[in-house]
Computed example of a mutant assay.
Amino acid sequence: MRRRLVPAAALLPLALLLTACGGNSSASTGTGTDGQGSVTLNVGDQKGGSEAVLRAASELKNLKYKIKWSTFTSGPPLLEAVNAKAVDVGGVGNTPPVFAAGAGSDISVVAAWHGTSKGDAILVPNGSKLTAPDQLKGRSIAVAQGSSAHFQLVASLKAAGLSPADVKVKYLQPADALAAFTSGKVDAWAVWDPYTSQILETKRGRVLTTGDGITNGLTFQVAAPTALRDKKKSAAIKDYLDRLRRAQEWVYDHQDDWAKVWAKDTGLPYEVALASVKRSNSSRVAVAVDKPLVASEQQIADAFTRLKLIPKKVDFARFIDTRYNGGLPPSTTPARG
């Protein structure tokens, strides 16, 4: 069968929905999940994120609390909402908490998943003459500032003997970066899945390098300390995290089913969703928020401090809470293959 290609014009609205890790964007609110009891847990989510996977895995049944969902287009504003106590808990990538910590935000990392970084990639157009990361010197690269892709770019350049000063970094959110990439206005694009799968499946580019073996592959749930100090909300957060962990296990065994749900929820073509699930989404393993995790995130913080993108040294250990670790494997546990 001939693969259905998605034209660039059709990709742009999707990019507005899926800015999963970077940028300054607002939230949409008003949706809720019914439950029992007087406690309402305010949860920050992203399109096709926690609510979708919990619903797909049938993990939103028999709740003893209610959930009010706020859907954000990116990690940084979600953490701004956590800091403002408008959100009790929400999911982000490995870099937004570092920038939030650098800004002195009142946040606590309470849960983590370790996955592959194969979906975090530096992409180049099909006709590009670039074949290796060290050839990026002097080239223009689009990336969302403060996103997981931002650190992946920094780490990939370092591995190639380069620094951000050796390239022309263009801070663009995914909608603008996608347009710039497909129109040839930038030489490369540092981004994450499902954008990586979107470009590859529509034959609009290829991978120059990935974050596999370079970045830590961590994603987080981050909570407001005020919610953690509330006995009822703290108990609700524990139950919520347990459900998320079970839902992720469900994804591993039901990749096709999850891809169908994800495609419907986000507007992704099914083939793109399935490629992203197989490349990145199904590999995640719930792990403990532990000392190796802190050390790994501290390296990210220190890298951005050296680049003067974070104004002062961050002590990342001050921004974690280990109360929900019980029985989880260490953060160094390999992702599923």
Rank of each mutant, 00 (worst) to 15 (best):
L244P: 01
Q298S: 01
D315L: 02
K233L: 00
S74N: 03
W113K: 06
S163D: 11
S234K: 05
A301M: 05
L208C: 07
Q299H: 09
A259K: 01
S148T: 14
K137Q: 14
C21G: 13
L5Y: 01
T209C: 14
S74V: 07
A295I: 05
T29M: 09
F319I: 11
G217T: 08
Q298D: 14
P133K: 15
S331P: 08
K232G: 04
S50D: 14
S38I: 08
I141L: 09
S26A: 15
K312I: 05
L172C: 04
A295D: 01
L78K: 05
A27R: 09
T73V: 11
H254P: 13
T95S: 00
W192L: 15
L157I: 02
A235N: 02
V289K: 14
S128T: 06
A236H: 02
S296E: 11
V289T: 00
S28F: 03
D290K: 09
F319R: 04
L12F: 11
G22C: 04
V289D: 06
K61T: 15
P13W: 11
S156D: 11
K85A: 14
N42P: 04
K232I: 01
A144N: 10
L60H: 05
T266G: 09
V39I: 12
G91C: 10
N62M: 09
Y195W: 13
K85Y: 08
E249C: 01
Y195H: 01
L208R: 10
S108G: 06
Q255P: 01
W69Q: 13
V222M: 00
A149H: 13
T266A: 07
A295Y: 08
N325H: 03
I310R: 05
A81E: 04
R204V: 01
A295M: 07
Q298F: 13
I67M: 01
K238M: 02
L136D: 06
L293F: 11
A286V: 09
V169L: 06
A100G: 07
A15S: 13
S183V: 03
R204Q: 13
S25L: 13
V167Q: 02
V261E: 11
G90E: 05
S183L: 10
A52G: 15
D239M: 07
Q221E: 04
L274C: 04
P76N: 00
E249F: 02
V261M: 04
R306C: 06
A57H: 06
R246D: 04
S156H: 03
E249S: 09
V287A: 07
S50H: 11
A10P: 08
N83E: 03
K68N: 15
A132T: 05
I214A: 14
